[in-house]
Simulated scan of single mutants.
Amino acid sequence: MLLQPHAFAEPLPNVEINFGNGGEQPGTSALSILLLITVLSVAPAILVLMTSFTRIVIVLGFVRTSLGTQQMPPNQVLIGLAMFLTFFIMAPTLSQVNEVALQPYLKGEVSQTQALEAAAVPMKKFMFSHTREKDLLLFMNYTKAEKPESFEDIPITVLVPAYAISELKTAFQMGFMIFIPFLVIDMIVASTLMAMGMMMLPPVMISLPFKLLLFVLVDGWYLIVKSLLLSFNP
C-alpha cells in the first residue's frame, strides 16, 4: 500500500519546556541554572579547604610516599579514610552548624541569608583556632581591612585562604617528621650495599621490606591517626 502525500501534510505539534514562572524575562531561568551549577561545582573545593580534610589527606600521602609503596594503599582508600576522619574531627562543629543554622532554616524561623551567617560562625571559630597569625595578617594587610575585634568580624574570604596555607604548612611539617626514620633506613641500606660492592642492586628493593617491617612493628597507622587527632585539639 502506497503512502499518500497528504499523510504528512499536518505539521507536528510544538513542545515547549519552561523553568520557573512565566513572568521571568527570557534567559533568566537558564542563567539561574548556570549559576547554580557553577556554585555546586565550586562548593566541594571550598568545603574541603574549610575543614580538616586538607591536612589529613596530605599527611596520609606523605606516609605512602615515605614508605615507597607506589600506589599502595590506593588513592580511594586514602581519600576515604581522610573523609571519615574529617567527619569525626568536624562532628562538634557540624553539630553546632546544624543546631544554630540548618534546623532553624528548615523550620522557617530564619531566612537563607541569616542561616548562612549563623553557619559561618562555628566554621570561622574552627578555622581561626588553627590559623597562624602571620598567615592571617598576610591577607588582612593585603585587603587593607581594619583590625577585627573577634574572629566573627574576619571576612570569610580572608579566613579561608589563611587557614588553607596554615594547614599546608602544618601538613608538610608532619610529613617531614614522617620521612626521617624511613630516610635513615634508606641511607643505611644504600651504604651497606655500596660497602659490599653490590652497586647494581637497587637499594629500594632491600629497604622496602625493612621500612614495612618497622611501620608494622611500631603500629604506624595508629600513630599517624593519633597524631592527626591530637593536632586538631583546641
Rank of each mutant, 00 (worst) to 15 (best):
L49P: 00
M50C: 09
S52K: 06
F53A: 00
F53S: 00
R55K: 15
R55Q: 09
V57M: 05
V57P: 00
I58P: 07
F62W: 03
S66P: 00
T69F: 12
T69N: 07
P74F: 11
N75V: 10
V77G: 15
V77I: 14
I79F: 01
G80H: 13
L81I: 14
F84H: 08
L85K: 01
A91I: 08
L94H: 05
Q96F: 08
V97F: 01
V97R: 01
V97Q: 03
V97C: 05
N98F: 14
E99P: 00
E99K: 08
E99T: 10
P104N: 08
V110F: 02
Q112F: 15
Q114I: 02
A118G: 12
A119L: 02
A120M: 05
V121H: 06
P122L: 03
S129R: 14
S129V: 06
S129L: 12
T131E: 06
K134F: 07
D135T: 11
L137E: 05
L138E: 00
L138C: 01
F139N: 04
K144A: 11
E146F: 02
E149Q: 10
E149H: 12
D153E: 12
V158C: 12
V160H: 05
Y163R: 02
A164R: 10
L168P: 00
K169F: 10
K169P: 09
F172N: 00
G175N: 09
M177V: 15
I178D: 06
I178T: 03
I180F: 08
P181V: 01
L183C: 06
V184K: 14
V184F: 11
D186S: 07
D186R: 05
M187I: 10
I188C: 02
S191R: 02
